[in-house]
Design a protein around this nucleic acid. Structure first.
Lengths: 239, 239
DNA sequence: ACACGGATGTTATTTATGTTCACATTCACC
DNA sequence: GGTGAATGTGAACATAAATAACATCCGTGT
């Protein structure tokens, strides 16, 4: 049969890999990652379990792909939450002199951006706990990574683990921190290592709200705690 | 046969529940939590898989028990790391007046203790990643909890979730924070909500080192980052 | 046109796991 | 000693991951 659409679709799916990822995202979002089996994904995609192995080395590789997808969504959310970048680097490179008032404003804007990055991260985790739980799945797994197909040869870093800049939410943080430095909100000395403090606080807070004792707490409490944590760590890295 | 020790031990194990927990801890420590199946635990305990169900409602309940056990170990480590408490509450309650120098010393000691609590938490995670991963397993699970046997009726809080003071590592943090307040190292206003900031930063840092990009990094780097994170958040909560 | 090879899906099988059920053994207590 | 509850056994069922052998489709070169 060429394509008798009577019951089962055409033998070839078209873009199964994308379909599997899409179904995986939906399962993780609604049922949670514990309900996310390779078989269930293929079931929903209307395909046999073994078909998935044409696109992913194993279950872990599927999870990694989902994780990367979710990281992109997180970064998007963080960008939206932190408004537009202040463009500090450009302004400081054009040689124009600014008055102290404008400089202070730029620094404030950079700090707001940093704050938005952190709050966006936490908000994403709270709004999409199923996704959040999956986002960093692959980081603990071996460097199996993608399917036999799309392996761009030298994707991985020194020991086969993703470099920080390649984790989209982390990249947002790094950018925001740079902005703080160029705008003068953060001294170069204080900058070193600040990304770890920021990420720690914000990620830990998200965990607290998704898995920890703040799970299911009043949204106003959640928001207040998130703001407190973010403000504390920003205050902390500035000394 | 009453007890022909020839091959299999006596029909009744003695204290199987404890044995299962012990084996579970060992597996998690060496092989990692992913290797931790109910069957493997019973296998190592020399008992049939079904036997476990006399002591735990299901696999998740076993995991919860392991988690609680590990939390105790963590707290022990944190206590060791943070030396002795400063006894601030006692000193401030006995009516004795202290000079400004002694007060400052007490405050410093309280801050050192808080620092030790944080660093102890992180060190535990780095030294025992398998255990750390399991420590808070049950927090996301439903309130299944213990075996049909030992259910002390009203263990759980409002919605069936453990209260903060009942999580041993968290209790250490709370105690250290109180110490900071009574010693004057932390104002009462700043105290409110500080436990969330502290826990977030420290737990997030631990995650960074166990699952995240700092996994397997040079111990000196790990130590430096840990100290930086802890110092930043302590600085942050003090304003 | 058409044969061929690689990519993609399928069915069947293997091994492992969580869980339950009916049954066996042992312990504690009367 | 006898009896019931606690505890352990063995067999079974459902599901999952992974692999192998086979089927189908697609593009491509002649």
């Amino acid at each position: 049969m060429s394509r008798v659409a009577g019951k089962s679709g055409p033998y070839h799916h078209g873009d199964l890999r994308a379909a599997l990822v899409a179904q995986g995202l939906e399962i993780a979002r609604s049922e949670g990652p514990s309900a996310l089996s390779l078989r269930e994904v293929t079931r929903r995609a209307g395909v046999s379990p073994a078909a998935a192995y044409r696109h992913f080395r194993d279950r872990a590789a599927l999870m990694s792909a989902l994780g990367r997808e979710i990281q992109e969504l997180m970064a998007k959310r963080m960008r939206a939450r932190s408004d537009a970048p202040t463009g500090g680097a450009v302004a400081s490179a054009d040689g124009t002199q600014h008055g102290p008032v404008e400089a202070a404003e730029r620094a404030q804007a950079a700090l707001r951006r940093l704050r938005g990055v952190g709050l966006g991260y936490i908000e994403f985790a709270v709004d999409e706990p199923g996704w959040f739980e999956l986002a960093f799945f692959g980081e603990s797994a071996r460097p199996d990574e993608a399917s036999p197909a799309d392996r761009p040869v030298a994707t991985a870093g020194p020991a086969g683990q993703a470099r920080l800049e390649e984790v989209p939410p982390f990249a947002e943080l790094l950018a925001a921190l740079e902005d703080c430095v160029t705008s003068g909100a953060l001294s170069a000395r204080r900058r070193a290592g600040a990304e770890f403090s920021c990420w720690s606080a914000v990620h830990g807070c998200a965990e607290l709200m998704v898995h920890g004792p703040l799970r299911g707490a009043d949204p106003r409490v959640v928001r207040a705690v998130a703001e407190r944590v973010v403000d504390d760590i920003i205050s902390g890295i500035r000394g």
